[in-house]
């Protein structure tokens, strides 16, 4: 078991024929992901990487039965691509692109929610169910199969965390990179309950960072509804106020959104809060032993 995606998931790629789209689609296919086609307007009818290219998402869905779309279009076209996917009945859009305007994502997400389409990202590494299905840009071999769920705002920190978990002799069910933008799709509050219900997941790692209050919302939810151990790390304990730390959403506004505030809330909610990013793996092992 896993959450959201598995070996049977049929995936199309929007921005399939571009440089990034091509490179990462190839990598995903090599991992075992069922990429069944792609969409690039005005290139319909072509074959790319051995798969059919369509002009519209609607045609691609009708012809392939895809339920998930991986989006690689340039930032200015992200909102359009997301809305097209939602309109065509896609169930989950995984938005990899970095640099989409916040206003665009605000409209796109409103429409996706209205149409019942889930979104992951933007500005994220994607989602991977270990040894089954990779929809994104992460190095697949780092994610060995196991019983730990992973939710993270950061790309390389996701790899770091998975690597540490694997070094403890454990592994990953599904890892979701939710992205570091001010407006994102699925976040902790939707994903934690999915991992709670997944019979294979026995512990959940959540990696947050400064800015916004998604981690605070997560803490409330953990306290009320999550019975599996949650191991949390919040990046940016040493970040200065008012400075954007790489990610568009990673900024302490006034005195809101500090790492301390989030760590305190999570600790209070019963999560294992890790102060050093080097201790994520060992803490997961400890939490599972105690269980």
């Amino acid at each position: 078991m896993s959450i959201l995606v598995n070996k049977d998931t049929k995936v199309i790629v929007q921005g399939f024929t571009g440089k990034e789209g091509t490179f990462h689609s190839e990598q995903c296919m090599a991992y075992g992901t069922q990429i069944v086609g792609g969409v690039t307007p005005n290139k319909g009818g072509m074959t790319h990487l051995g798969k059919p290219v369509f002009n519209t998402v609607e045609e691609a869905v009708a012809a392939t039965g895809a339920t998930v779309s991986m989006i690689f279009v340039p930032p200015a076209f992200v909102a359009d691509a997301v809305m097209e996917a939602a309109d065509a009945g896609i169930e989950l859009a995984v938005i990899i692109t970095e640099g989409a305007p916040v206003k665009d994502m605000m409209y796109a997400k409103h429409y996706a929610v209205k149409k019942g389409m889930k979104t992951i990202g933007p500005n994220c590494p994607g989602i991977i169910t270990a040894e089954e299905c990779k929809i994104g840009i992460m190095p697949g071999h780092i994610f060995k199969k196991g019983n730990v769920g992973l939710i993270s705002k950061s790309g390389t920190l996701t790899y770091e965390a998975s690597n540490q978990v694997v070094k403890e002799g454990l592994g990953i069910t599904t890892a979701v990179g939710i992205g570091g933008d001010p407006i994102i799709g699925l976040s902790y509050k939707e994903l934690l309950p999915m991992f709670e219900e997944d019979p294979e997941t026995e512990a959940i790692v959540m990696i947050g960072e400064i800015g916004g209050d998604l981690e605070i919302q997560a803490a409330k939810l953990i306290k009320e509804k999550i019975t599996k151990p949650v191991i949390a790390f919040i990046a940016g304990q040493t970040a200065p106020k008012g400075k954007r730390m790489g990610h568009a959403g990673a900024i302490i506004s006034g005195s809101k959104g500090t790492a301390k505030e989030k760590m305190d809330a999570l600790r209070e909610a019963g999560a294992y809060v890790v102060e050093s990013p080097a201790d994520i793996g060992v803490t997961v092992a400890k939490a599972l032993k105690r269980k």
Binding site: S152, K153, S154, G155, T156, L157, T158, E160, G180, I207, E209, I210, F233, A235, G236, Q237, T238, A239, P240, K243, R244, M245, G246, H247, A250, A259, E275, S276, P277, A278
Partner: peptide, 30 residues
Amino acid sequence: LSYVKLDGNVGCMVNGAGLAMATMDIIKHE
């Protein structure tokens, strides 16, 4: 590159914003 100057003396060069923040944090932690 995305750079923000701070007041300490251990320079950090990292790939990825999250890991870069985490690296600052572990320097302090140590």
